[in-house]
Design a protein around this nucleic acid. Structure first.
Length: 597
RNA sequence: GGGGCCGUGGUGCAGCCUGGUUAACACGCCGGCCUGUCAAGCCGGAGAUCGCGGGUUCAACUCCCGUCGGCCCCGCCA
């Protein structure tokens, strides 16, 4: 007999039916007489009853079954008697009375228990990912991932997009992250690079007239990892011709609304908008978490004529600011707590942190004596600080002052429970086109070098490059950057000016991006697009905190695959073919390399 | 590249600071009892020399150094 249903799909509507189920033995409860087995598959599980008086053969078989055996049962779906109903289970009102059972495959005792919330350490689970993937949370996450990917494809198709694949073996381009390189056998000494994103290809597709493109594209970046960063990850990559930033954002919002719907986040979503300066000024971050209500205040004015020399001087300087953050309840905190906050602020670039406590109408602060009561009262009014609160202050260059307090804002929000519920989407726009790079000693693109400047800022490119705004936009959800995009440069002359502003001369530009510059001379439509981090979207929609929980076979923080034992050694023959000599530092006492598989 | 935390039966942890008994506990596993359990229960049992290497010491799971691996963070990355 063939399988008739998935275990988790058997429900009250099947009562009376004869079914054949196949799946894994999950929990087995042997009463001596009756044996209960929860038979599990990707759809869920169902309780199967083996009754020695009704079907002695199958009962004897089930007696031998153990966890994770793969088995087949045939039986009848019956309603449970009222006292035996388990209301906590989706199908706890029914069970399968087994008539016959057959073993399909034995299983070793799993090295960790397959359960909803595993207690096993993550590296063990990663080593035996095939077992970990049996756990319901992983099964739900990968199902959701499938559904979101499918929904994205369908929606983009409905909006006239073509899904077009672009190469995985491509060439290294300057700017951006470190590339993963692939040596060429046929071209000795040359390397392909795995794409950091399909950026250039999608622009070329626009130039070729494909009008609307998307791809659920794998991207690779050889940088150090975090819980929200994997060396290979997936983007929903979108590009459109003859559009403005508003058009791209409109499509993106429609897409995100569909994805919310599919993942069960019903209700209206608002997409807020903040300019980059506003985001920095109010939240101290270019990806603010708007679930946190506390905002930064600008109190520069309060210090202009203040008796606190250090701050008065800072306030007087052009481009500087004094930013304040009100900490509800901070009045009760001790010295140590503020010292720790000061350390954090310094790590974030601030020169220091000033704190003021307000208790019973009186101010306490290391700098209280320099300020005087009137000034302190003024500060309290400006920040809205109440009795029992504290105020944190940083004086510095405007962006440094704001972002260092922004770091404290996020940290305090996490520790003090300031984070509200919901999905707070916000577009961050008007990013500066360029930023200073200490590493390169010149300006580099904040987004990427093909981002179109705001037209009215174009002439600032030569005079005041940092003041040039980009036609770019980031989509932020609850403090997590879901994606970003821009309107691209579609004129060769503008592209050359931008390269020049970044200190890339015409010859260098043509060496590195010649194909793009050439393509731009053959009739490029105005175009723009966006790339959304698909893994992050799934993570957020599933309410999870780690990307590893929404990727079937993720890598560790050292970019290793513990199950495959990747990366692995290459054989001398392979290296020979690739014209590669390996120079590894072998240290005395170091472990010998693993045997591998 | 830097900082922090962790590594003890199959799994998760206690012990380590204040070196010295049979390395505790829970889950899992094995066996027994049990016909309505659903994280089944009760009884019994097996199972670790403490990531690896070196050092200190009469003696190291415990102290020191190094190393490997995992996680988190900064730098990096969009």
């Amino acid at each position: 007999m063939k399988r008739t249903h998935r275990c988790g799909e058997v429900s009250k509507q099947h009562v009376g039916e004869e079914v054949c189920l196949q799946g894994w033995v999950w929990h087995r409860r042997d009463m001596g007489g009756l044996i209960f087995i929860d038979l599990r598959d990707r759809a869920g599980f169902v309780q199967c009853v083996f009754d020695p008086s009704r079907a002695p053969d199958s009962h004897a078989v089930a007696h031998e079954w153990r966890s994770e055996y793969v088995v087949q049962i045939e039986g009848k779906v019956v309603e449970r008697t009222p006292e035996n109903v388990n209301p906590n289970l989706p199908n706890g009102d029914i069970e399968v009375q087994v008539l016959s059972g057959e073993l399909l495959a034995l299983a070793e005792t799993p090295s960790f228990v397959i359960e909803e919330d595993s207690r096993a350490s993550e590296d063990l689970r990663l080593k035996q990912r095939f077992l970990d993937l049996r756990r319901p949370p992983l099964q739900r996450a990968l199902r959701l991932r499938h559904e979101l990917g499918l929904a994205a494809r369908n929606l983009l198709d409905e909006h006239g997009f073509y899904e077009i694949e672009t190469p995985m073996l491509t060439r290294s381009t300057p700017e951006g992250a470190r590339d993963y390189l692939v040596p060429s056998r046929i071209h000795p000494g040359k390397f392909y690079a795995l794409p950091q994103s399909p950026q250039l290809f999608k622009q070329l597709l626009m130039i070729s007239g494909y009008d609307r493109y998307f791809q659920i594209a794998r991207c690779f970046r050889d940088e150090d990892l975090r819980s929200d960063r994997q060396p290979e990850f997936t983007q929903i990559d979108i590009e459109m011709s003859f559009v403005t930033a508003a058009d791209v954002r409109q499509v993106t919002e429609t897409l995100v609304e569909r994805l919310l719907e599919v993942s069960g986040h019903s209700g209206q979503v608002r997409f807020g908008e903040l300019s980059f300066p506003e985001a920095i000024d109010r939240y101290g971050s270019d990806r603010p978490d708007l679930r946190i209500r506390q905002e930064l205040c600008d109190v520069t004015e309060a210090f202009v004529d203040s008796g606190f020399r250090a701050f008065a001087q800072a306030a007087a300087l052009e481009g500087n600011a004094i930013k304040a953050l009100r900490v509800p309840g901070g009045g009760a905190w001790g010295r140590t707590r503020f010292d720790k906050l000061t350390d954090e602020a310094k790590k974030a670039g601030a020169k220091g942190l000033v704190w003021i406590k307000l208790n019973d109408g009186a101010f306490t602060s290391p700098v209280a004596k320099f300020l005087g009561d009137a000034a302190l009262q003024d500060l309290a009014t400006r920040t809205g600080a109440l009795d029992g609160d504290a105020i944190l202050l940083v004086a510095d260059e405007w962006e440094v002052a704001a972002t260092s307090l922004g770091v404290l804002r996020s940290q305090l929000a996490a520790s003090e429970g300031w984070i509200g519920d919901g999905m707070q989407f916000v577009w961050v726009t008007e990013f500066p086109l360029l930023k200073r790079s200490d590493e390169h000693g010149r300006y580099v693109a904040r987004h990427h070098p093909f981002t179109n400047p705001v037209p009215e800022d174009l002439d600032l490119l030569e005079q005041d490059p940092l003041a040039v705004r980009a036609q770019s936009y980031d989509l932020v959800l609850n403090g997590v950057e879901l994606g970003g995009g821009s309107i691209r440069i579609h004129r060769a002359d503008v592209q050359e000016r931008v390269f020049r502003a970044m200190g890339i001369e015409a010859q260098e530009a043509s060496e590195k991006f010649g194909f793009l510059l050439r393509a731009l001379t053959f009739g490029a439509p105005p175009h723009g697009g966006i790339a959304l981090g698909f893994d992050r979207i799934v993570m957020m929609m599933a309410g999870l905190k780690s990307l590893r929980d929404v990727i079937a076979f993720p890598k560790t923080t050292s970019a290793a695959d513990l199950m495959m034992e990747a990366p692995g050694d290459a054989t001398p023959d392979q290296l020979e073919d690739l014209h590669i000599a390996v120079r590894v530092q072998t240290e005395v006492g170091a472990d010998p390399p693993d045997e591998g598989v």
